[in-house]
Simulated scan of single mutants.
Amino acid sequence: MKKHVNTPNGKPLIPTIKWGQALCLGAFALVMSGCSMTPPKTFNFQADVPENFTVTGTANYKPAPGETCIAPSGEAFTTGSLFFKPEQPKTAHQVEFKVPLTDDDHGCSMVLRGLKLTMEGQWGPRELDMGQETASFSVSDEPSEQTPVVQVFKGQCQWYFRTMGPYRYIVKIPNCRALNANGDMEKRMIGGRLHRDQLADSTVRLVLSVAKEEEPYFNRYWIKTAAGWKPCKGNWGRDIEELCVSPPQFKNFKMPDGRDCTVYPNCTK
């Protein structure tokens, strides 16, 4: 995990460091840096992710009540951040990292105000054959009614496909949303509110799934047949798929591996 603190001019307050490495080396460093021997309280974040998905996180901090954080330039700063990128999944489909509730390494006390996740899905063999979505968790100072050991949030990603460019290559776009108690996708983003008094030594868990079937990105630009989806040719004469007309006319397209196809995802008729 890399650590950053942002200042008003956008420059990091200190160099990037590796979480888990010794921040203070020896008694002299302890005195000079003011590092605390007591590690900050943390909560454990876990994400169960589908195949070809990864999750990274950015924890955002604000000055603690009554604190004013001053950069070496003399300017006050109000935002700090820690970036989490698990080096190795806990299992094949789970990532995990610990999120500190406070950050005291920069001359002032800062407290966690939120956690933003980036969910990245790889849909093709090339490095650029990927899409991203986000999830956000805010931290509330309101007292909670109970202190659960594990808080579970559920979400699902839907892949949408379309064609792009003069050769009409298939590309995919993810749309990730929260799931309700019935397992249905909602319109709201994945995430929610966390209570500060619940978080120490607890676990926040995200269970992410992928919809079984992909859908066209453009409504009424594709027609579903027994063999699969076929992109329409309309009245505009564009390179990509167009609004279907009656009777429908169809275009060929290319799969990411270069195959010429007429039906998606089966390719052939």
Rank of each mutant, 00 (worst) to 15 (best):
M1A: 12
K3E: 11
K3W: 09
K3I: 11
H4A: 14
N6F: 11
T7R: 00
K11A: 11
P12I: 07
I14G: 13
I14A: 12
I14E: 14
T16V: 11
K18D: 13
G20Y: 04
G20K: 03
A22V: 12
C24S: 10
G26T: 06
F28V: 14
F28D: 15
M32I: 12
G34C: 04
S36T: 09
P39K: 09
P39Y: 08
P40L: 07
P40W: 07
T42K: 11
N44R: 13
F45S: 09
A47N: 07
E51A: 10
E51L: 11
F53I: 05
A59T: 02
A59V: 01
N60T: 13
Y61I: 08
P63C: 08
P72Y: 03
S73Y: 03
G74M: 00
G74H: 06
S81N: 13
S81Q: 14
F84T: 05
P86K: 02
Q88T: 10
P89L: 03
P89Y: 01
K98M: 08
V99I: 07
D103G: 06
D105L: 11
H106M: 12
H106D: 15
C108V: 02
S109D: 15
M110I: 10
R113G: 09
L115K: 02
L115A: 03
L115C: 02
L117R: 05
G121Q: 00
Q122E: 09
G124K: 13
D129R: 14
D129G: 12
Q132P: 15
F137G: 02
F137P: 06
S140M: 08
Q146C: 10
T147I: 10
P148Y: 01
V149H: 12
V152S: 03
F153H: 06
K154L: 10
Q156E: 12
Q158S: 08
Y160H: 15
Y160C: 12
R168S: 03
Y169D: 08
I170G: 04
P174I: 03
C176T: 01
C176I: 02
R177V: 01
L179W: 04
N180P: 11
N182M: 12
G183D: 04
M189G: 14
M189R: 14
M189A: 13
R193D: 14
L194S: 05
H195M: 11
R196G: 00
R196E: 12
D197V: 00
L199F: 06
D201T: 00
S202E: 11
S202R: 08
T203I: 01
L208T: 11
L208S: 10
S209P: 07
A211F: 01
K212I: 10
P216I: 05
F218K: 13
F218N: 14
F218L: 13
R220C: 11
Y221R: 07
I223H: 03
I223Y: 02
A227C: 00
K230F: 02
P231H: 00
G234L: 07
R238Y: 15
E241M: 01
E242G: 00
E242D: 04
L243P: 12
C244A: 06
P247A: 06
P248S: 05
Q249N: 12
F250Y: 00
K251A: 07
K254Y: 05
G258S: 05
D260G: 14
D260A: 14
N266H: 08
